[in-house]
Write a protein that binds this DNA or RNA. Sequence first.
DNA 1: GTCCCAGATGACTACGTAGTCCAAGATCGC
DNA 2: GCGATCTTGGACTACGTAGTCATCTGGGAC
Lengths: 361, 361
Amino acid sequence: MSVSGAEGGLPAAGGRRRRGPGMTEVARAAGVSQKTVSRVVNGEPHVSPEVRDRVLRAIRELDYRPNTAARALLLGRYRRIGVVSLGSSLYGPSTLLIALERAMQRAGYSVALASTLEGQKVSAAVDALLEQGVDGIVLSEPIDDGTPLRLSADVPVVSLGEGVELTPGTSAVVGGDGVAAARMATEHLLSLGHRTVWHLPGPQDWWAARDRLRGWREALTAAGAPEPPLPSPGDWSPASGYAAGRQLAELSDITAVFAANDDMAIGALRAFADAGRAVPGDVSVVGYDDIPAAAYLSPPLTTVRQNFAAVADRAVDVLIALIEGRPAPAEPSGQAVELTVRASTGPVRDQGPVPHPAPAP
Amino acid sequence: MSVSGAEGGLPAAGGRRRRGPGMTEVARAAGVSQKTVSRVVNGEPHVSPEVRDRVLRAIRELDYRPNTAARALLLGRYRRIGVVSLGSSLYGPSTLLIALERAMQRAGYSVALASTLEGQKVSAAVDALLEQGVDGIVLSEPIDDGTPLRLSADVPVVSLGEGVELTPGTSAVVGGDGVAAARMATEHLLSLGHRTVWHLPGPQDWWAARDRLRGWREALTAAGAPEPPLPSPGDWSPASGYAAGRQLAELSDITAVFAANDDMAIGALRAFADAGRAVPGDVSVVGYDDIPAAAYLSPPLTTVRQNFAAVADRAVDVLIALIEGRPAPAEPSGQAVELTVRASTGPVRDQGPVPHPAPAP
DNA sequence: GTCCCAGATGACTACGTAGTCCAAGATCGC
DNA sequence: GCGATCTTGGACTACGTAGTCATCTGGGAC
């Protein structure tokens, strides 16, 4: 072997790895030059069918795999996209991550994953990705600590939220339709005759939570409904939904609640049940996400479903266009969001004041 | 610039990317050789503090980032681990993925993600990872289509299940304690006085589902309880749990059910409610996963919680030991699994025959 | 028959890094 | 004061790939 140097004097552990064959070895086996192997591998023209066959056979026999590190070094491109995730296993983020991975794989890019560990900034995850070598970055569930995040990556960046300030020309924001979805959920409740709708907000450092709050507010304003005070924001968990639900259940005039996500809605359902308020008899509840369990809760939950696949596809389209210097594709038309009405919402029963705590005359 | 060739004649799109500075440029700026920069970057000894400072300053000024492609090409190692996931957003798999990412990041490895698209084999995902360049692979939620998966990767592989046949010497199976957990859940129900326990199995091509089935069976056998027939296996979804629950609700002598996961348990809860069987009055139900919502369901769900972080940490420990040629670390002691008893399980009410469908004489 | 052109193939090189080996200066022992 | 050892830094090279350009062959036009 010509590569015996790599085998001989080096320690097995921590040293250089045994490598597979390279184009040179394939070339020798096929009796052609390394460059011709390169042509075959990359499907370039000007290779006679006979030579091509010989090379392909040698590739198969040697179990040759192209070395992406060498290719990346030469071309300066990695065919890899980095995804910054929050490292949570919440339904929305993980569904989105899966959808992003699928879209990137379809586009011929591989995926590098970096999560922001607790307390760590997004920029640390971005740095880790840049150091590892990526052609572009998707900020999957951006959060911010008040000030907008300022990134100076030398690759295109697509953010799925708005709390990010990016260098112009190489970046883009691709949002789902969170505001519209929240508006839709609120309007549904108003259309059932509820005088107004209360909101269980999510963590306000999440872009998604702010969007839902905004959509709720917009719908109330548009309908001329009064805006009730907000309970303290939750953290997407059922526990936080329960806590907020307990607060709300104390109030007598509540008939409709829009929770920031399904998990918080589940907590609120439990809180209302514990307080003796029937859902949907006394209070209607709407969630957000349409988790698989939503249809099987007691009562089945009215909720809003986002089209994560569509959001992911568009984000990847835009990012790859930026990477490859093509113009960004046109905004696809069509709502990516949909309300599923189930048994947790219903018309207002009556306008009698306090339903349970004291069965008024 | 000496690299002007890369700037000049090449097309901007699809061609070579503009690159950051290399060690050579840093060296020129600091007035040392490229090798000395390499020494500073890698923390090697034999560099005077003064030179080190000069180099570090140049690095900061030029915003130098080491090129991992070049390093990987030279060393044959990538400091990257591939994770094969199933591309589902189920609670277990996504929690595990997050935990794996955290563990790898902590160990100084970056993460390449590949999911098996629908209908695609695991080996395709493995090939994609190998082609991209990884030092090792974790099979996160291995499934198999009957025959054990036979992989011929030239890197170490750690599988989190058993349905995989691996080349010896460079691979390992690191299981959670799924069997023990299922046994624990079943024993809990038996200890409440239930004559036997029915099981809602998960998809049997998943290793995790087979483990739970096995643990359930072992507990019944050990207790001398009869083994009831199995409903058709579900797919982890609440819908499939509902379907199986409807089947079981027809039967008169059911008092205890162990579902393969919490989502299926949620479906079963709904099915029993629809059939007029009270939980836990008539039927006790145990789930698996302890999803955040479990404590807030109606009724709150007794369930089993796996320690995903522990499983992930151990998998990464073992894999990195294999990669670096160190002996695998000792098996950590301690149960990674825990039963949380809530209101969905209770003692048998009585042994009277059919509670609801027909109040037999 | 000569010329020319297109297709087919290969030699050479750069990409950025770290291992190897060598050179020059510094420090020490005697 | 001189060789021996240590410290510090640099020159050179390989890693596997694809771009550039040169070479060679064969066939058709004239």
